[in-house]
Simulated assay, not measured.
Amino acid sequence: MKIIKVFNNNVALTKDLNSIEMVVMGKGLAFQKKVGDEIDEEKVQKMFVSPSENFAAKLSELLNEIPYEIMSLSKDIIELAEKELRTELNDSLYLSLSDHIHFAITRIKNDIPIKNALMWEVKKFYKAEYQVARLALGLIKERTGVELPEDEVASIALHIFNARQDHTGMEETVTMTNIVKDVTNIVKYHYGIDFNEESVNYSRFITHLRYFAYRMLRGEINDDQNDALYNQVKRQYGEAYKCTIKVADYLEKEYSMKMTKDELAYFMIHIHRVSIREKRMK
């Protein structure tokens, strides 16, 4: 594995025998190394394929500002997240998370706290990521001595959730979260109920809503118009139909998105399920 660019003493861009470019990280692995030198692979702590020249340039820029210790900390948090969530996360998280943690620590040291307006929504809708992010805050305190506020749990959870999607941007993730929040409130106030957030039906509803919002923002909504299913569900769940129309009106007004009959039918089913149990409990 030969070096084709040295970013700093701890990070380099390399090329393997198959001419695949990879970014490698490790304490001192590029110290006093130059282009063409071989990397001591025993020192490599993390390696990932460089997806583009843009990525390498962005990494180079960040490494001029972010200490290697923060990059290493991010690596450990990501490995913890992958273990807890039993999934692989997008390599771009190494950049975004390192940048975020470094900036958050700097703000706290300068007494400039920043509130996360979506903290309660993230806590409710992305529970698994939120729990991992809470562990991350403990690791950050242990390694840096800096105790970040709880708002940062939500921020880190959003970064983790974002990395679980297929190249979703953070702006898109925030928009998805707002859609989930707004639609949930429409259902809540239409029926005059409070949700049992531990129930299976609530979990199914939120999962459907999250992935609907994800597909909607990417223009991947199913174009099928299943009149038979739509008419049957509309007749059977009249109140859920009225609520679903409110949701459809909101989405069309705010996002210029017109729901298909298939989507309307599935929304009616999920809204009926999540509301009927709460009404019975009430």
Rank of each mutant, 00 (worst) to 15 (best):
I140Y: 04
I140Q: 06
I140A: 03
K141C: 05
K141N: 09
K141F: 13
R143C: 04
R143V: 15
R143P: 04
R143Y: 07
T144Y: 01
T144A: 00
T144C: 05
T144S: 05
G145E: 07
G145V: 07
E147Q: 14
E147K: 13
E147N: 13
E147T: 13
L148G: 04
L148V: 04
E150S: 12
E150D: 14
D151P: 08
E152Y: 10
E152K: 08
E152Q: 02
V153P: 02
A154G: 06
A154F: 04
A154E: 01
S155M: 07
S155I: 08
S155F: 06
S155L: 05
I156V: 07
I156P: 02
I156S: 06
A157R: 02
L158P: 08
L158Y: 02
F161V: 08
F161S: 09
N162Q: 12
A163H: 01
R164F: 11
R164E: 12
R164S: 12
R164C: 10
Q165T: 11
Q165N: 11
D166Q: 14
D166A: 12
D166C: 10
H167W: 13
H167M: 12
H167P: 08
T168A: 14
G169T: 15
M170I: 15
M170A: 03
M170S: 09
M170Y: 12
M170R: 01
M170N: 09
E171D: 15
E171G: 15
E172M: 11
T173E: 11
V174W: 06
V174T: 09
V174Q: 10
T175C: 15
T175W: 07
T175Q: 15
T175A: 15
T175D: 15
M176C: 11
N178K: 14
N178I: 14
N178W: 15
N178R: 15
I179Q: 00
I179S: 03
K181H: 14
K181G: 04
D182R: 11
V183C: 07
V183D: 03
T184H: 00
T184S: 07
T184F: 04
N185D: 13
N185C: 07
I186E: 07
I186W: 06
I186G: 09
V187D: 00
V187M: 04
V187I: 03
K188T: 02
K188F: 00
K188A: 04
K188G: 01
Y189S: 10
Y189V: 01
Y189C: 00
F195S: 05
F195I: 08
F195K: 04
F195R: 00
N196Q: 09
E198T: 13
E198M: 12
V200N: 12
Y202E: 03
Y202P: 03
Y202M: 07
S203E: 15
R204Q: 13
R204E: 15
R204L: 14
F205K: 00
F205G: 01
F205N: 04
F205I: 01
I206E: 08
I206V: 04
I206H: 00
I206N: 03
I206S: 02
H208P: 00
H208F: 05
L209C: 03
R210D: 11
Y211V: 02
Y211E: 10
A213I: 06
Y214C: 06
Y214F: 08
Y214K: 05
R215A: 14
R215Q: 13
M216F: 05
M216T: 10
M216A: 10
L217E: 05
L217S: 05
R218A: 00
R218S: 06
R218L: 07
R218T: 10
G219R: 01
G219H: 07
G219F: 03
E220C: 09
E220P: 08
